[in-house]
Simulated scan of single mutants.
Amino acid sequence: MRSITVGTTQRQYPAIRNFLDSPVPGVEFVRTGNALRYPNHALFKLFGHVDPMLDNLHVGARGCDLIHFFNRVSLGSTPWVTTFETVLPRWDQHRPKAIRWGLKLLAGKPCRRLIAFSECTAGLQRALLAAHPDLADAILPKITVLHPLQRPLVDGPKLAPAAGEPVRFVIVGADFFRKGGGEVLRVFDRLLERGAPLRLDIVSTLAFGDYASHATAADQAEAIRLIARWPGAIVHHERLANEGVLDLLRQAHVGLLPSWADTYGYSVLEAQAAGCPVITTDIRALPEVNDDAQGWVIPVPKDPRGNGLTGTADERRALSAAIEAGVEQAVTAILADPASVAAKGAKAFARIATMHSPEAHGLRLRTIYEEALGG
């Protein structure tokens, strides 16, 4: 087996989850430079933000056979592949000339594979290419789907909550309100008021102002009030290291991601790997990783791309109402039948081993890299 050196310019969580942490046989990941980081850094210093085109472009590579990006494309001649979450190029879709130029980079010889991290993502890319038929023939064969890997976090499926034991739920995410946290808190407040045996762990800074929910400081203040109302039953962890989050999931019974907007939902995989079934919405890739056999799925109003409808105040109210009703229905069903948690959790845990195996992921990446280098 030939050794392959794969360059990367990114060390963020998505890159770790999708390739840097993959046990790829005979592959060494090395850090490589990007000349465009210097003008981007200057823009950030001057104006407090980066240019979205520069931020998702790359120039320059040393000491590697090929480069693997996340959401980025290259101007260079070194062979490259990229894992992506929505569409490429990841630029303003209202700049057609820029999009056209970016698609020509995807059609070029140095671009060897476009690795969509879900079927939803692959479908969005194909839909974009439908408007560019002269480039589609060169790009479509490069698209492949590879879901993130996930290692098991427990040895096997969990038991159902014991009689008299609170059912433990966990929700994780800095953008608390975009993740459905506001709706979760209102549901738990009502159910705890009725004496339901529940515990909710929240790992979040309770950030507000996200692009989907448009939550405000008043929403944050209300969340803090509800948390304070139920000490011991609702526990807020402002920040936890990743291992601390995983420990919470190991102790929990059910995960929560009733999200307004997410491209994937890594916390769903982590919860399932800890033997927890998950309550999710049905946006974007979530139906690919959760269903009613192994969890609970809340149908919400969506656009043709699978995104929750959040464009107007009325749409946001309707989406919030659907999430809140769905969370309450699922939690009430769990309280009525705690054994369902163990049954669904066992299926979720088995799914992780089948669909997100690190070993299978590593072998698939090895094949992608070999094909990218011509065999």
Rank of each mutant, 00 (worst) to 15 (best):
residue 296 W to H: 01
residue 330 A to E: 09
residue 258 P to D: 01
residue 346 A to P: 03
residue 44 F to Y: 14
residue 122 A to F: 06
residue 196 A to G: 08
residue 294 Q to T: 12
residue 74 S to Y: 07
residue 364 R to W: 05
residue 206 L to Q: 01
residue 55 D to F: 13
residue 70 F to I: 15
residue 289 V to E: 05
residue 257 L to G: 00
residue 39 P to M: 08
residue 84 F to K: 05
residue 16 I to N: 14
residue 52 P to V: 02
residue 280 T to K: 03
residue 236 H to M: 07
residue 286 L to R: 02
residue 292 D to I: 02
residue 38 Y to E: 15
residue 123 G to D: 01
residue 255 G to Y: 03
residue 273 A to S: 06
residue 290 N to K: 07
residue 167 V to M: 09
residue 326 G to T: 05
residue 230 W to D: 10
residue 294 Q to G: 14
residue 92 D to K: 08
residue 343 A to Y: 08
residue 296 W to F: 07
residue 153 L to K: 06
residue 232 G to T: 06
residue 247 D to W: 07
residue 156 G to E: 04
residue 359 E to A: 15
residue 191 L to I: 09
residue 343 A to T: 14
residue 320 S to M: 08
residue 274 A to K: 00
residue 319 L to N: 00
residue 151 R to S: 11
residue 74 S to W: 06
residue 306 G to H: 09
residue 185 L to R: 08
residue 259 S to P: 06
residue 63 G to T: 03
residue 71 N to P: 05
residue 312 T to M: 03
residue 286 L to E: 05
residue 317 R to P: 09
residue 315 E to S: 01
residue 196 A to L: 07
residue 199 R to F: 02
residue 163 A to N: 08
residue 355 M to K: 10
residue 208 F to G: 01
residue 336 A to N: 10
residue 140 L to Y: 03
residue 295 G to F: 09
